[in-house]
């Protein structure tokens, strides 16, 4: 039972991160119907920028909490700019092109970002400084570390903030209108180009934060870290119902929990035939499963082909 609860906590931590990243996929998809393959790489850039900033600032004797704060802000600024640039350079010119074209630029961009990161930060694993004291709460046999607590609380706050933004502000209204029908939104006076740009900016900001969280949680960063994470977050978005914000959050959490429990129990379940080194396979199985049995996801509504 303790293992179960422990894995549940680990899963929720991981799931909160997936959810933040999934939001980026789902927002872009909701409006452009495009899988932004470069999204995972944006996250990686955020993590590595933060890592460098923290190392620099603590090296100059800054107190750790302040250094982390500055690092997160720096990562967000860099990622938001990057997201904006990606949209502008690689996607906007192709908005009317056949579907295959933006998909190919997206994968191309993702490779470019990885390799540029490898040039800047090298190919090795960089260790993320321990910024939070290694304290933990033991509660009923379950250990919750400070970093886990921070991730869960922060992710929840950010997601709540995003929901308020989308539901209550003028920008959010314009985003929802554009997602419903870009042509009509434009007729109603919405500057859809601007809204699309904002969508990328917000999504990239979330990815930056998620990137810092992952690096802090595992204690390492690497130029390839965005790939698998992006794939999983996309799975989370599909699981929840792509295009649906609440779905992305739910999907992220569920996927994190499934993965953690799966990794914890797969050995027992398969008589040790499969070990926890298969944990990356779970997300993929979930993706295929969702596509087979419920392609619209848990909260998604059936998309209508326009004839």
């Amino acid at each position: 039972m303790d293992t179960f609860l422990q894995q549940l906590i680990n899963g929720i931590t991981l799931g909160s991160i997936y959810a933040l990243v999934a939001l980026g996929y789902t927002m872009v998809y909701g409006i452009l119907e495009l899988i932004n393959f470069a999204h995972g790489e944006v996250l990686m850039v955020g993590a590595l920028v933060a890592l460098t900033v923290i190392q620099g600032l603590t090296g100059w004797g800054w107190p750790a909490p302040l250094a982390v704060l500055v690092a997160v802000l720096a990562a967000m600024v860099v990622c938001m700019t990057l997201g904006l640039a990606i949209e502008r350079v690689a996607y906007r010119p192709l908005r009317r092109a056949p579907k295959l074209a933006p998909l190919i630029t997206a994968i191309g961009l993702s490779i470019v970002l990885q390799q540029v990161a490898a040039l800047i930060w090298g190919r090795g694993y960089l260790s993320f400084p321990a910024v939070l004291p290694p304290v933990s709460v033991v509660w009923g046999g379950v250990i919750i570390t400070a970093i886990q607590g921070a991730i869960i609380v922060l992710a929840a706050l950010i997601m709540a903030g995003l929901l308020v933004l989308v539901q209550k502000t003028a920008l959010g209204r314009a985003m929802r209108a554009t997602a419903q029908n870009p042509a009509v939104a434009q007729l109603m006076g919405v500057n859809t180009d601007r809204i699309i740009a904002w969508t990328f900016v917000i999504g990239s900001g979330l990815a930056a934060v998620a990137g810092v969280m992952v690096a802090a949680y595992y204690g390492v960063g690497n130029y390839t870290m965005g790939f698998m994470l992006g794939l999983k977050a996309f799975t989370a978005a599909v699981l929840g119902g792509i295009g649906n914000l609440a779905g992305a959050m739910l999907g992220g959490l569920l996927l994190g929990v499934v993965e953690a429990l799966g990794a914890g129990y797969i050995g027992d379940l398969t008589g040790d035939f499969f070990g926890s080194n298969y944990k990356d396979v779970f997300a993929f199985m979930v993706l295929i499963g969702v596509l087979v049995f419920h392609p619209n996801g848990l909260l998604g509504s059936r998309a209508r082909e326009k004839v």
Partner: peptide, 9 residues
């Protein structure tokens, strides 16, 4: 990667 992006554009 660059080739993919530039070719498409």
């Amino acid at each position: 990667g660059l080739a993919l992006v530039l070719m498409m554009l």
